[in-house]
């Protein structure tokens, strides 16, 4: 009997693996969770875009109210697709949006905003090697972070913000934090 059980072992191991494979089909191996959740926003003192009229982006700007930080760049193709959504959010005025112009020439960044519209309350430039973006654990653009009134990162969103993920995920979190 004991010997027979030993012969069952391979198929049992395989069934175990099968469970993992099945689960794996519904996981995204490219989605990397952020380790910065609930931690304060990184120390930063980013210069302003030329001619935009603000004073750039500093860590203390995140204190006092819930905000959304958006990583973008004039070179970023997906950002163009995301932009109309950000413009709409600005018009709705639910939450202030700060922009970080990542790995970009500030002049190009400003021209890009003039062309596509400017949804941001404050914008800071983060030229290569993008130290602030690395401090945020950014891997690509666009990426967005929800920061609470104490200036702590509460949620990371990778990729384009669209109607669906805004309604289903981002907005509820922001509403909750704003209470």
């Amino acid at each position: 009997m004991k010997r027979r059980l030993a012969y069952l072992l391979p198929v049992l191991v395989f069934l175990g693996l099968l469970g993992f494979f099945f689960r794996g089909l519904f996981l995204d191996p490219k989605a990397i969770p952020s380790v910065l959740i609930d931690r304060p926003v990184p120390q930063m003192d980013l210069a302003a875009l030329p001619g935009r009229g603000d004073t750039g982006l500093k860590s203390e700007h995140f204190k006092g109210q819930v905000s959304l930080v958006n990583i973008f760049g004039s070179w970023c193709v997906s950002c163009v697709a995301e932009h109309p959504m950000l413009m709409r959010l600005k018009a709705e005025g639910v939450v202030p949006i700060h922009g970080i112009d990542w790995r970009d020439d500030p002049v190009q960044g400003m021209l890009w905003l003039q062309k596509n519209g400017d949804p941001y309350t404050r914008v800071g430039t983060d030229p290569p090697p993008g130290r602030t973006a690395v401090d945020f654990g950014v891997t690509g653009a666009p990426e967005s972070f929800i920061v609470d009134a104490e200036g702590r990162i509460r949620y990371k969103h990778v990729g384009i913000i669209d109607e669906r993920n805004w309604r289903q995920t981002l907005l509820p979190i922001i509403k909750e934090l704003q209470k």
Binding site: P128, P129, A133, V134
Partner: peptide
């Protein structure tokens, strides 16, 4: 990749 270049510099 650009990010790799940034990380190398950092």
């Amino acid at each position: 990749a650009d990010l790799a270049k940034d990380l190398r510099q950092i």
